[in-house]
Amino acid sequence: MSRKIVVGYDGSKSAKAALDFSVSLAKAEGGSVVVAHVLEWSPYSFLTPEELEERHKRRGEELERAETAVLKPVVDQLSGSGIAVSTALKYGHITDTLCKIAKDEGADQIIIGRTGHSGLATRIFGSVAGSLAQAAPVPVTIVP
């Protein structure tokens, strides 16, 4: 049986660790990896009239930047590794969107890095790792 792993990736150091772990897991078990990048976005945020006018254009630019700067290097890097790699690029709330990607892709598990914050900041803002562990439809692995 081939496993499908969704790995949350934003180009950070911890995300790279999560990616490495996913790749080694996929290699060992003969699975595939979906590299998922989420652009934080709320439809309930407030914009100025000028920002509204330019939103469609900016969205295009943001997607292109994410594609070339974040996802493409990963795909290139893994092209010779022998495992099947695909990407997912979405706007939304990070936790909810990762769960949705896992569901849509029919993935078996989600792997993410962690930011290493603890204490006050996490108490106030919550952490992606923590809320994902609560909300995910599939097992979640958090890589230090």
């Binding site: 439809p43 309930y44 100025t48 009239p49 509204l52 997607l63 939304g92």
Partner: peptide, 17 residues
């Protein structure tokens, strides 16, 4: 709203502005 349109101007945002 189509979730695939996330990142575009939402009805809420147009109304709020």
């Amino acid at each position: 709203s189509d979730p695939n349109d996330a990142g575009e101007v939402s009805h809420f945002q147009a109304l709020a502005t």
